[in-house]
């Protein structure tokens, strides 16, 4: 690994997006107000993520990794700063538009899989597409492709409870990629898996990246952080280090 820059404002003329930049964070801060106490979860994050890049975010517990991922996934809004996705600023969007962009541009992979227990594997994977109003035939084709891609097409009628943890996370990966999002956000995707299944999921993500997917992964496990091309290290809500594989 090779140390690169620390988190700081870009030099003038170097802070905008270029043709390859998918996400651009410009001075993003996040402050939580609770009982008259201000908690600065993120303090001035400047970060670009290029198309096709595999980025990992690491750091100790409470450093702001998950908050940053939530903001990237449009599940939360920054207190200050700018967030540009596909050259579109996102600050002024309505909740409905943010939901729509989340559905089309972002795929989530959670540590706890977050599959819905009452839905079959097929229905879980199909879920993001149903919210797009996509025709049934197209949905079927996409779901089939996604499940084949993660090697779970033989379990379409199973319920999550009938699968192992590794299999559930593969289904979750299929659900993340079925909508062909611009970026997949993975939050500790191996956190609930044993090392064998963890390895398998990481291999799957690497394969997806090799096929062109943009991935941003939060992990505190250095072994898995090394799967990424670039790793940003957070500490106390700031990017303190950036390394490249």
């Amino acid at each position: 690994m090779e140390p690169t820059t620390q988190s700081k404002p870009p030099a003038p003329g170097n802070g905008g997006t270029n043709g390859h930049t998918l996400i651009h964070l410009d001075g993003v801060t996040k402050v939580f107000f609770t009982d008259e106490v201000e908690t600065h979860a993120l303090s001035g994050i400047y970060l670009d993520i290029r198309r096709g890049e595999y980025l990992s975010i690491s750091g100790p517990s409470g450093c702001g990794k998950s908050t940053l991922l939530s903001i990237l996934g449009l599940l939360d809004s920054p207190t200050d700063g700018k967030y540009t996705l596909n050259e579109s600023p996102l600050e002024a969007l309505s909740i409905s538009d943010r939901t729509r962009i989340r559905n089309r541009e972002i795929g989530f992979i959670f540590q706890a899989f977050n599959l819905i227990g009452d839905l079959t594997v097929y229905e879980n994977v199909e879920l993001p597409l149903t919210y797009r109003g996509m025709p049934g035939s197209e949905r079927r084709q996409r779901v089939q492709e996604a499940l084949e891609r993660v090697g779970m097409s033989h379990r379409v009628k199973h319920y999550p409870a009938q699968l192992s943890g590794g299999q559930q996370q593969r289904v979750a990966v299929a659900r993340a990629l079925v909508g062909k999002p611009s970026i997949m956000l993975a939050d500790e995707p191996t956190g609930n898996l044993d090392s064998k299944n963890g390895e398998a999921v990481m291999e799957l993500l690497r394969d997806l990246h090799r096929e062109g997917a943009t991935i941003c992964m939060v992990t505190h496990d250095p072994r898995y952080a090394d799967f990424a091309e670039r790793t940003v290290h957070l500490f106390d809500g700031r990017i303190v280090e950036e390394t490249r594989a």
């Binding site: 996934g73 599940l75 909740i95 409905s96 939901t99 729509r100 989340r102 559905n103 089309r104 989530f108 959670f110 977050n114 819905i116 227990g117 009452d118 879920l127 993001p128 919210y131 797009r132 659900r175 909508g179």
Partner: peptide, 16 residues
């Protein structure tokens, strides 16, 4: 609540 949150994270609008 959790399931609904997952659905919303995946793009379910309020009307959904």
């Amino acid at each position: 609540t959790h399931e609904i949150a997952v659905r919303m994270a995946l793009g379910a609008q309020k009307r959904d």
